[in-house]
Design a protein around this nucleic acid. Structure first.
Lengths: 263, 263
DNA sequence: GGGGATTCTCAGGAAATTCACAGAAAGGCG
DNA sequence: CGCCTTTCTGTGAATTTCCTGAGAATCCCC
């Protein structure tokens, strides 16, 4: 089976993914219909950011290409046919919107995740994202970008993959689409940061994650603060999800934290 | 089974490793897909450290090359294509991050283990661990470096190698991902040092390890204390894992300690 | 522009961990 | 069997690591 060129690819999730990089164990991996890894095109002229993104996305088990300008992006889109595009709206050679327009002509059904500066005109972006695209404002956290991209790919892919937006650890359930969280059936309200932290933990159940890893992943790349915000937010999370019940968030002194089903 | 993304090698574990070097007996060895030993590039300008590391890693049965600067590292990466890189972030000729960036361009899927000074953690570089990479702060213990490197190689390698995060000796089980330890199914809490000591013992079952060896391996290289900390920690371990049951940790008077299944 | 929610710093205190010291116990040898 | 050596372990103190309350700064929504 081959992926037909211009029409949308369909993806499937595979728990027994044989794909290379250490995507979080046991989490189903997004694949193209032919079993090859999903292709994501990263377009950003800041090479350090592009590197960071490529690194993180590649680690998800995806096939990544990076381009630094609109012309290159279009060329790559034409020849390589990515399944999703990560597009910085500020490019040196042409307006992000122009790039988008041409991309659309080339890849009508491929979802786009925009990277935009915080103060950018949000209404215009909002209009752009009407068609199933999405956007993330700089500075972002890797967790956020990865999650959005996964969401886009999931929604663009086969319906069969749709049910996979939930993470479950014991009686703790997290829905990545609705951002809802339940413990033992009871809904729990989390702030944005708490949610991302919990998602990261839940995507790596039974694995010790160091405070640095957490900081790198959950906080935005330009965060310059104290490492003990992690402790603080772990503390917040515990109050909300571990109160009374058998605790699921555990401290490994000198190593980090991990989440696992209580008992 | 081949790894899909661009150029990464795939590893397999082999219990019947015929490799010559004195890798720990009976523990499956990480090998490349073609059966040759895993290649690790060590980049550090402090030659004493580089020597120490090279020695220890070679002892794991790996193929090691050392470079003292970024330029050499890049040259070696290009020609020798290592499976992992051990990179000091403080290099004489160029910033560690610059080296990283270029390395990444050369070897997009090869994991990197960073060596960083303790106090440099504060002004951490965002994304240092973003792509599945890891880091170790100086002064480190060899046990720690080896363990992390193994972890990286494991996660970067084939899925088949993924389940190998557990060490087993008799009814004693140690999980390197979750840092959990069980004896006869019952969970045992260990401190960080106890955990490393036990891991070292369990990676060398039925082999006598001298106190000096243990000190060199489990304690950081600048440890200046008394040698009897080893006795002390052996004592701690016994209290936790050998209490009541048939003892697994044995003293060889005048020689050292060894672990083996009870009875 | 006001008020509540959220993020984050700071710092005190609690708790766990590491380690030195020293006496007790055990092993080995003449 | 006695002595010397090596190992074991109790005690306690120094240190490290973690937790959490209080409050400042910021954001966001109405």
């Amino acid at each position: 089976m081959t992926v037909t060129s211009s029409s949308s690819a369909s993806f499937r999730t595979s728990a027994s993914a044989s794909s290379s990089r250490g995507a979080p164990a046991k989490q189903p991996e997004l694949l193209r219909a032919d079993g090859s890894p999903v292709r994501v095109l990263v377009v950003d002229d800041e090479s350090s950011l592009a590197d960071l993104l490529s690194l993180a996305l590649r680690y998800e088990g995806w096939d990544i290409r990076a381009e630094g300008d609109g012309a290159g992006a279009l060329r790559c889109a034409r020849s390589w046919r990515p399944d999703a595009v990560l597009l910085d709206v500020m490019l040196p050679d042409m307006n992000g919107l122009t790039v988008l327009g041409r991309l659309r002509r080339e890849l009508p059904d491929v979802p786009v995740l925009f990277l935009t500066a915080k103060d950018a005109v949000e209404d215009r972006i909002a209009g752009l994202t009407a068609g199933g695209d999405d956007y993330v404002t700089k500075p972002f956290s890797l967790e956020e970008v990865v999650a959005r991209l996964r969401g886009l790919l999931r929604r663009a892919g086969a319906a069969a993959a749709r049910s996979e937006s939930r993470l479950t650890v014991g009686d703790l359930v997290l829905d990545e689409d609705s951002h809802e969280v339940w413990r033992d059936g009871q809904e729990i309200h989390l702030t944005a940061t708490e949610f991302e932290l919990l998602r990261y933990l839940m995507r790596n159940p039974r694995r010790v994650l160091s405070k640095t890893q957490i900081l790198d992943r959950v906080w935005s790349y330009d965060f310059g603060g104290q490492a003990n915000v992690v402790e603080l937010y772990i503390s917040y999370l515990r109050r909300k999800i571990d109160v009374g019940r058998a605790p699921m968030i555990h401290t490994r002194r000198g190593a980090g934290y991990l989440i696992k089903p209580g008992e």
